[in-house]
Simulated scan of single mutants.
Amino acid sequence: MADRPTIGVLALQGDVREHVHALAKCDADARPVRRPEELDRVDALVVPGGESTTISKLAETFGLLEPIRKRITGGMPVYGSCAGMIMLATEVLDGRPDQQSFDGIEMTVRRNAFGRQVDSFEAPVRISGVPGPAFHAVFIRAPWVERVSDGVEVLGQVTEGPAAGRIVAVRQGNLLATSFHPELTGDLRVHQYFVDLVRST
């Protein structure tokens, strides 16, 4: 893998620009991905926050659902934040009946588990394997992880408040997911963690 990997950001809906900016600061060549031929030209992919049912529909419309699944099966690193976590899950609770995902991480995720937009909140979250203080994590209509398989590593949980103990960061092989939005805080450690993961593959 090159020292400056090419990392795509799925640009169908959501906070694409913020992820591109954060990845570029971590010395990655970041670019939007909207079509299968653009997916073919990247080493890894970020699936941003947004609205998971909309992302699911647009991924089908733009012919990206199966190509992304195939790339994941082939070992492509992928990081999903918030809606991206939902898109990476093998099971989604409280989603639409026709909602599809990329079937990457063997976990059950509950959509909008932390509540509606007005219930958005911020909380400290420590991420295993990432040095430094706890992240100032921003949760916006966020999911949480209810169950994981034996092959999934739990990296972070809410440590205080009514949601204490809820799983909000996981990794399975080359796949990483958080239910919060590190791209909105200026803290680059999650993005740097992912870029380093991509370089190591």
Rank of each mutant, 00 (worst) to 15 (best):
Asp3His: 13
Gly8Glu: 01
Leu10Arg: 04
Leu12Tyr: 05
Asp15Gly: 15
Arg17Lys: 15
Arg17Asn: 15
Ala24Gln: 15
Lys25Ser: 15
Asp27Leu: 14
Arg31Asn: 01
Arg35Asn: 05
Glu37Val: 10
Arg41Asp: 14
Val42Ser: 06
Val46Ala: 09
Val46Pro: 05
Val47Pro: 02
Pro48Met: 10
Gly50Asp: 09
Thr53Lys: 03
Ser56Gln: 09
Ser56Asp: 09
Ala59His: 01
Pro67Asp: 02
Lys70Arg: 15
Ile72Thr: 05
Thr73Cys: 11
Met76Leu: 08
Met76Glu: 08
Pro77Gly: 09
Pro77Leu: 10
Val78Thr: 01
Ser81Ile: 11
Ser81His: 10
Cys82Ala: 08
Ala83Asn: 07
Gly84Phe: 09
Met87Trp: 09
Met87Lys: 06
Leu93Arg: 12
Asp94Thr: 06
Gly95Tyr: 11
Asp98Asn: 11
Gln99Lys: 08
Gln99Glu: 15
Gln100Trp: 01
Phe102Met: 00
Gly104Trp: 01
Val109Trp: 07
Arg111Thr: 05
Arg116Asn: 00
Arg116Ser: 06
Arg116Asp: 01
Val118Tyr: 00
Val118Gln: 07
Val118Pro: 00
Asp119Ser: 06
Ser120Met: 04
Ala123Gly: 03
Ile127Gly: 00
Gly129Val: 02
Gly129Cys: 02
Val130Trp: 01
Gly132Arg: 11
Ala134Gln: 08
Phe135Ala: 12
Ala137Gly: 05
Phe139Ile: 04
Phe139Tyr: 03
Ile140Leu: 03
Arg141Gly: 03
Ala142Thr: 09
Ala142Gln: 03
Pro143Arg: 09
Val145Cys: 10
Val148Glu: 00
Asp150Ser: 14
Asp150Tyr: 02
Val158Ile: 15
Glu160Gln: 13
Pro162His: 07
Pro162Asp: 07
Ala163Ser: 14
Ile167Ser: 00
Asn174Cys: 10
Leu175Glu: 06
Leu176Thr: 09
Ser179Trp: 08
Ser179Phe: 05
His181Met: 09
Leu184Ile: 13
Thr185Tyr: 07
Asp187Lys: 06
Arg189Cys: 08
Val190Gln: 08
Tyr193Gln: 12
Leu197Ser: 04
Ser200Val: 10
Thr201Pro: 02
Thr201Val: 14
